[in-house]
């Protein structure tokens, strides 16, 4: 059995607001093994993004334990253990594509920057766009640049927060396919936040179903689908069975009620 990359035990996270406390995460228990592709799925307000941000040390947990690579999230962040892909590409508009991808390399003062930039642009099929500025690219291409940027310093862990949420379904399908190929080739551990059931089932080796008020985990599904998949797999009965279980989990968490 592979080593645990992420371990959460009885994790609580409460935001203090003017309207009183908001229980964003409650009693979260989670294990993510090395090389897994884990999706957090749930409606808005279920804490899936908060959980990802807690793993990234962008939010602090209130109680319980959370370890990333056996360290606290802060130590992991200081050790630059993960690459993070945001909801929006968050590219720096004054930097060309290659300089955006090179940004973490500059900050970490790593060697072979040109080689790394080339390799990662190649990985997201953007060779030839090095000198373009972000506004010259489509939304899908911009998000691929941000993925190349997250991978540029070769972190073992990739955290993705609804990276394709703003894209249309056709582009999204294509990027999902490419992301799976990338995962297969690089063997990275991926934690992926989404609110699309087909996306979660198609991509993941493990699906974490969450529900709001308080944000908690309803179900954890280990996928029986093979590691290598094509979009056609979405027509198979195994796929539909898993999607059904996700939907049942969401229903049990009152996600479909007002």
């Amino acid at each position: 059995m592979a080593e645990n990359v992420i371990t959460a035990r009885d994790l609580d996270l409460t935001f203090q607001t003017d309207d009183g406390p908001v229980f964003a995460l409650s009693k979260i228990n989670l294990d993510v093994a090395e090389g897994e592709f884990v999706s957090f799925i749930g409606p808005s307000g279920c804490g899936k993004t908060t959980l990802l941000r807690a793993i990234a040390d962008l939010e602090k947990s209130s109680s319980g334990t959370l370890t990333v690579n056996g360290m606290t999230p802060e130590q992991a962040r200081l050790a630059r253990a993960y690459g993070y892909v945001f909801q929006a590409p968050a590219l720096y508009p004054w930097r060309t594509v290659e300089r955006n991808v090179g940004l973490p390399l500059e900050i970490m003062a790593l060697d072979d920057q040109a080689v790394r930039i080339q390799r990662n642009l190649d990985l997201v099929n953007l060779t030839g766009f090095e000198k373009k500025f972000p506004w010259q690219l489509s939304g899908g291409m911009q998000q691929r640049v941000s993925i190349a940027r997250a991978l540029a310093f070769d972190p073992k862990l990739l955290l993705m927060d609804e990276p394709f949420g703003a894209l249309d379904e056709i582009v999204r399908d294509k990027l999902n396919q490419q992301l799976l190929e990338l995962w297969d080739r690089t063997g990275k551990t991926v934690v992926f936040v989404t609110h699309s059931i087909p996306e979660a089932v198609f991509l993941s080796s493990k699906i974490v179903v969450m529900s709001p008020r308080p944000g908690r985990i309803i179900d954890v599904i280990d996928s029986v689908l093979p590691r290598k998949r094509t979009l056609d797999i979405r027509e198979t009965s195994e796929f539909l069975k898993i999607a059904h279980r996700v939907r049942e989990g969401l229903k049990a968490g009152h996600s479909y009620e007002d």
């Binding site: 962008l58 993960y82 690459g83 993070y84 945001f86 968050a90 940004l103 973490p104 900050i107």
Partner: peptide
């Protein structure tokens, strides 16, 4: 946030 994830 991006800068923070890089520990810049």
């Amino acid at each position: 946030d991006l800068m923070q994830t890089y520990n810049a």
